[in-house]
């Protein structure tokens, strides 16, 4: 943790491992970028060094933006992901807080029941879920996925938040209670603010899962103007046994880079918002 010593230590402890991990995580993105910029003739050329790019073209991006409803899909995806993440964080907190900080009869059962929702896997759930959505008349609306995604996200958010809620010392809350704060006030003013990293962590997870989700979106969203990025791209860029590789990769990049930028903002905040001096740099 604590950095002492000269550049040699810094190289061994920081730059070498960091370089390794960055190569590991970012290499496929380099690949996607190069692929999305290659004309088809170059893409299919096995004689060339695959990492190099000789005649970059923006054709795949232009085609993606003009021949498909990609921007609309992106907007749908963001809307769905933001709303379902917000719902999941609120519901997750409502579940996790009492479970983590109050010992009341039935809490163990609730905790188990919540996690048990993962026991029936999604590839099976989608048929009854489609039935529910149809009965509610929500087919082909973004509401259908906004309502179903939290079923996957709430349990995870609740469990993750429980860990963070538990880590806040009871004394802090008790002091507030003695000063006359209600349970809710103690939670709202004392415990929740201390758990900001937990919320960001759970939020990132929920958001990502929501914007990645494929099966429910495939079944519930069938018109091109309500589709999300993954379903839209797969449905319209995989045609028979012909993949529109360049456009698929362009869609992958355009779909994820804005999110990365938003995340970098959050990541910065949750690092900055932490109690000063907790980490030795």
């Amino acid at each position: 943790m604590v950095m002492r010593g000269g550049w040699r230590v810094k190289l061994l402890q920081l730059w070498l491992p960091l370089g390794f991990f960055l190569l590991f995580t970012l290499f496929p993105f380099y690949w996607m970028t190069v692929t999305s910029l290659k004309p088809n003739a170059e893409l299919y050329n096995t004689q060339m060094m695959p990492l190099l790019l000789y005649h970059p073209t923006l054709k795949h991006y232009v085609d993606l933006l003009t021949q498909t409803s990609f921007l609309l899909w992106t907007w749908n995806t963001m809307l769905v992901a933001v709303v379902s993440t917000a719902i999941s964080l609120v519901l997750g907190t409502m579940l996790a807080y009492p479970l983590a900080r109050i010992n009341f009869p039935g809490s163990a059962l609730i905790a188990f029941a919540v996690a048990a929702t993962y026991l029936v896997p999604q590839p099976l759930l989608f048929i009854p879920m489609a039935d529910i959505i149809n009965r509610m008349g929500l087919g082909d609306t973004l509401t259908s996925v906004i309502l179903t995604y939290p079923t996957m996200l709430v349990p995870f958010c609740a469990w993750l938040l429980m860990g963070y809620f538990k880590s806040v010392p009871h004394e802090l809350e008790e002091a507030a209670r003695i000063d006359g704060a209600s349970h809710f006030q103690a939670m709202w003013r004392i415990v929740l603010p201390l758990c900001t990293p937990g919320f960001i962590s759970a939020g990132i997870f929920a958001f990502t899962l929501a914007q990645n989700e494929f099966l429910y979106a495939l079944i519930f969203l069938t018109k091109t103007d309500v589709r999300t990025v993954p379903v839209g791209a797969i449905a319209e860029l995989i045609r028979g046994d012909v993949f529109y590789w360049g456009q698929l990769m362009a869609a992958a990049l355009l779909g994820s880079i804005p999110v990365a930028i938003i995340y970098s903002f959050f990541v910065e905040h949750y690092v900055a918002g932490l109690t000063a001096g907790s980490v030795k740099g």
Partner: peptide, 20 residues
Amino acid sequence: LVRAMVLLPFIVPTVLSTIA
């Protein structure tokens, strides 16, 4: 920047990154 970039594999839609 590094912390955000490292998250990229997790962000990109799985079906699309798998195609890569």
